[in-house]
Design a protein around this nucleic acid. Structure first.
Length: 330
DNA sequence: AAGATTCTCAACCGCACCAAG
DNA sequence: TCTTGGTGCGGTTGAGAATCT
C-alpha cells in the first residue's frame, strides 16, 4: 500500500500558527500549504479544526472525566470515538487531557491507566508468573483447562457503557472469536468462512504464529500457514453484531500445570531433551547469579534473562532445524 | 529575580485505509 | 491489478506558559 509522503523536514516550520499564516491559509486553501512553510497535513489539520466556535475552552468536568475513563476502559485509546461522546471536545483535547491529567490521576489512585486494574492485582499476577514451574509442567499446554479458559474468554464480551452513542461507520470490526465444542475448535473469522479445526491444528498454528490473541491467530490462518486453508472444515455461524469482544486472550493464560496432548514420540523426546538442557543451564546460571534458591528476585532477573538468551542461542545452534517451518519437522 | 522544572497545547510523524486513475 | 494521493487517527514531540525553588 502506498504511503503518503512525509513532511519534508527541511523548510518545514514547527510551532504555533501565526495570524498571518492563518490568513494565508484562508486565502490559498489548505491544499499543499501553498505559500506556507508548513507541510500539507499540518495545513489540513489546521483547516479542519480551526476556527471551531463550538469548541469548549473550559476545563473538563468530573462528568466528562468519568466518561473518558469509562470509555477508555471499554474501547481503549480511540480518542476520536471518545471525543464524539463529549460535545465541544476534540480528539486531541481528550488525548492530551488523558495523557497529562487522567493517567496521573488514576496512577495516584492505585489504578493502572492501561488495564484499569488496581496495581496490587497486577503485582499479584506478576508474582504468579514469577513462580516459574519446571518446564515439564509449564510447557505450552493445551488441555481441558485450556479449553475451559478459552470458553470463558470467548464469552467475556465487554459491553459499551450505557448511553454510548456510536456512529455506525466508526464501530470497530468485531474481532475474531474462538469457541470449542468437544475436541473441535470453531474459529469465527472477521473475513471469510468460519473454520473448524482439531486440537493439533489449533496448537500448531498458535505455536507457529506466536499468537497472543485471536487477531494474530487469524492473521496466521489468513497468511496460510502450514496446513493450507482447505485443510479446515468451513462452517457458517451467526454473527454477533450486538457485542464487542475487546478482551483478547493471551496464550500465557493457558500455561497450566497439566501435561498437554502428547506430540509424536520422537518430537516429544527432542522437546524434553531441550527443556532439560535449557532449564538446567538456566537454573545453574540463575543460582550463580543470585546465590540463593530458584526464586527469581528482581536482583537476578537480568541475569536470568541473559541466561535465557544465551541458552536460546545455544539451543538453536545445537538444533538448527528448530528454526525451520514446523511442517518440515513432520 | 532568576533559573529549573513541570505542565499544556497542538503541530508533527507514521501508519493504515480508501478511492480514483 | 497496481500506483498514487488523500484522509483519519493514535502516538510523540517541542515550544511556550506556569509554577516551583
Amino acid at each position: 500500500m502506498a504511503r503518503s509522503p512525509s513532511c519534508e523536514k527541511i523548510n518545514v516550520k514547527r510551532g504555533l500558527w501565526t495570524t498571518e499564516e492563518d490568513t494565508k491559509k484562508l486565502a490559498f486553501g489548505s491544499k499543499h500549504g501553498s505559500g506556507l512553510k508548513r507541510c500539507g497535513r499540518s495545513c489540513r489539520i489546521r483547516w479542519t479544526n480551526y476556527p471551531r466556535p463550538d469548541l469548549k475552552d473550559d476545563n473538563f468536568t468530573t462528568q466528562e472525566e468519568d466518561l473518558i475513563i469509562k470509555l477508555h476502559a471499554a474501547i481503549g485509546s480511540r480518542w476520536s470515538i471518545i471525543a464524539q461522546q463529549l460535545p465541544g471536545r476534540t480528539d486531541t483535547d481528550v488525548k492530551n487531557y488523558w495523557n497529562s491529567k487522567l493517567k496521573k490521576k488514576l496512577s495516584q489512585l492505585g489504578i493502572d491507566p492501561v488495564t484499569h486494574k488496581p496495581f496490587s492485582k497486577l503485582i499479584a499476577d506478576y508474582g504468579n508468573i514469577g513462580g516459574c514451574q519446571k518446564p515439564s509442567t509449564r510447557i505450552a499446554s493445551i488441555n481441558k483447562d485450556f479449553k475451559n479458559a478459552m470458553m470463558l474468554k470467548s464469552e467475556s464480551h465487554q459491553t459499551l457503557p450505557e448511553g454510548f452513542i456510536t456512529n455506525i461507520n466508526d464501530q470497530p470490526k468485531p474481532p475474531p472469536k474462538m469457541e470449542t465444542t468437544g475436541n473441535n475448535f470453531l474459529f469465527n473469522r472477521t473475513h471469510g468462512d468460519d473454520l473448524s479445526m482439531n486440537l493439533d491444528q489449533f496448537q500448531a498454528i498458535s505455536m507457529k504464529s506466536g499468537a497472543s490473541n485471536c487477531i494474530d491467530f487469524e492473521n496466521e490462518i489468513m497468511s496460510v500457514s502450514m496446513f493450507g486453508e482447505d485443510c479446515f472444515s468451513k462452517t457458517s455461524s451467526p454473527s454477533t453484531p450486538s457485542t464487542c469482544s475487546t478482551t483478547a486472550f493471551s496464550w500465557n493464560d493457558f500455561l497450566l500445570e497439566d501435561a498437554f496432548t502428547p506430540l509424536a514420540n520422537q518430537e516429544q523426546d527432542l522437546v524434553s531433551q531441550i527443556e532439560d538442557l535449557t532449564w538446567n543451564k538456566i537454573e545453574v546460571k540463575s543460582l550463580q547469579a543470585s546465590g540463593s534458591d530458584l526464586q527469581f528476585s528482581s536482583a537476578s532477573d537480568i541475569s536470568f534473562m541473559e541466561a535465557m538468551l544465551d541458552q536460546e542461542n545455544e539451543m538453536f545452534l545445537s538444533f538448527p532445524h528448530l528454526m525451520e517451518e514446523p511442517s518440515k519437522l513432520n
